[in-house]
C-alpha cells in the first residue's frame, strides 16, 4: 500500500523535467511564434532590426551567433581535443586525477567572470595588437572557446577511455607508436563520442549570453572582419528584455524561439550520436 503510493508519487515527480521542458517550449513559442507570422518571414529574416518601428529582422544576429560559435569551435576543438588526448593517452593516472577536476573547474567559473576577464585583458590586448575597438568577433570567439573547453575535454576523454583496451594492444602489437595509434585507431573508434561533445559545446557557445554581451561590442550589423563588433541572438534578448513591451517583447521571444529550436535540434543530434553505439 505504502509502496504503491510511493511509486505513483515518484512517477509524478519523475515527470518534472519533461514537464518543465514542455512548459518552457510552450511559453517561449506562444509568446514568440505569432509575431513571426504577423511580421512575415521576409521581414523576420531581414537585416532591419527596429522592433519599435515594425522592423523585426534578425538576420544580422543569426549571422553574429553563427560567427562567434564557429570562432569558439575553432578555438575550443583543437585545445579541447588536445587536452582530452593528452589526458587519456599521454599522462599517468596521477596527472589524470589532478588535471581532470582542474579542467572541470573551468565549467564552474561563472560566465560573467569570463566576460570580465575579456573586458579587462583580452579586449585591450586585441585593441593594442590588431587595432579596432577590441570588442569583436575575435574576443568573443576566444572567450567562448575557453568556456566550451571543459565540455569538449570531458566528453571526448570519456569517449577515448571507452575504446576497448584490445584495440590499443592490437595496434601496438603491429608496431605502431602511441601517436599513430591515437590517429589511426582511437580517434576513429571514439568518433561518435567526440562529435557529441563538440555538438554540446556548440550548444553552449550559441546559448551563452552574458560573456558575449560584455565583449562582443553588440553593433547591429553583419561584421566585415573578425575584428568588428558583433551582436548575437542571446545578447539582443538580454540587452532589450528589460525595457521591451508589446511587439518588441514578442520579437525577443521570437529570437528565443529560434535559439531554442537550434538548441533542441543540436541536443537531439548529440543524443542520437551517443545512443547509436
Amino acid at each position: 500500500m505504502k509502496d504503491k503510493i510511493a511509486e505513483k508519487l515518484l512517477l509524478f515527480i519523475a515527470f518534472s523535467a519533461i514537464l518543465s521542458l514542455s512548459l518552457i517550449t510552450f511559453f517561449i513559442f506562444q509568446q514568440g511564434i505569432p509575431l513571426i507570422f504577423k511580421a512575415g518571414l521576409g521581414n523576420f529574416f531581414s537585416l532591419r532590426w527596429a522592433p519599435t518601428r515594425g522592423g523585426f529582422g534578425i538576420l544580422s544576429m543569426v549571422v553574429g551567433s553563427l560567427m562567434v560559435t564557429i570562432g569558439a569551435l575553432a578555438v575550443g576543438i583543437p585545445f579541447g581535443l588536445a587536452g582530452a588526448i593528452f589526458l587519456a593517452e599521454f599522462s599517468s593516472s596521477t596527472i589524470q586525477k589532478t588535471l581532470k577536476p582542474v579542467i572541470e573547474l573551468l565549467a564552474g567559473i561563472p560566465s560573467v567572470v569570463f566576460g570580465f576577464i575579456g573586458i579587462v585583458i583580452l579586449v585591450p590586448f586585441i585593441r593594442e595588437i590588431f587595432g579596432g575597438p577590441g570588442f569583436s568577433v575575435l574576443a568573443a570567439s576566444i572567450i567562448l572557446g575557453i568556456m566550451i573547453l571543459p565540455t569538449i575535454v570531458s566528453i571526448s576523454y570519456d569517449a577515448l577511455l571507452a575504446v576497448p583496451k584490445t584495440y590499443r594492444e592490437g595496434s601496438y602489437a603491429l608496431g605502431a607508436t602511441k601517436w599513430q595509434t591515437v590517429v589511426m585507431v582511437l580517434l576513429p573508434a571514439a568518433r561518435s563520442g567526440i562529435v557529441a561533445g563538440i555538438i554540446l559545446g556548440m550548444g553552449r557557445a550559441i546559448g551563452e549570453t552574458m560573456a558575449v554581451i560584455m565583449i562582443a561590442g553588440n553593433a547591429l550589423k553583419i561584421p566585415g572582419s573578425i575584428l568588428d563588433s558583433v551582436r548575437t541572438l542571446t545578447s539582443t534578448i538580454a540587452l532589450e528584455l528589460g525595457y521591451a513591451a508589446g511587439d518588441h517583447r514578442a520579437a525577443l521571444f521570437a529570437c528565443g524561439s529560434i535559439l531554442f529550436l537550434i538548441i533542441i535540434f543540436l541536443n537531439i543530434i548529440a543524443t542520437r550520436i551517443t545512443n547509436r553505439k
Binding site: F15, L21, I24, I28, Q31, G203, G207, E208, G256
Partner: peptide, 19 residues
C-alpha cells in the same frame, strides 16, 4: 524522462530567463 533531463540540461540560461 531521460530525454527531458538531457534537453533541459542543454537549454541556455537566457532561455530560462525568458521562461
Amino acid at each position: 524522462i531521460s530525454f527531458g533531463a538531457d534537453c533541459l540540461a542543454g537549454v541556455p540560461s537566457i532561455i530560462f530567463g525568458l521562461f
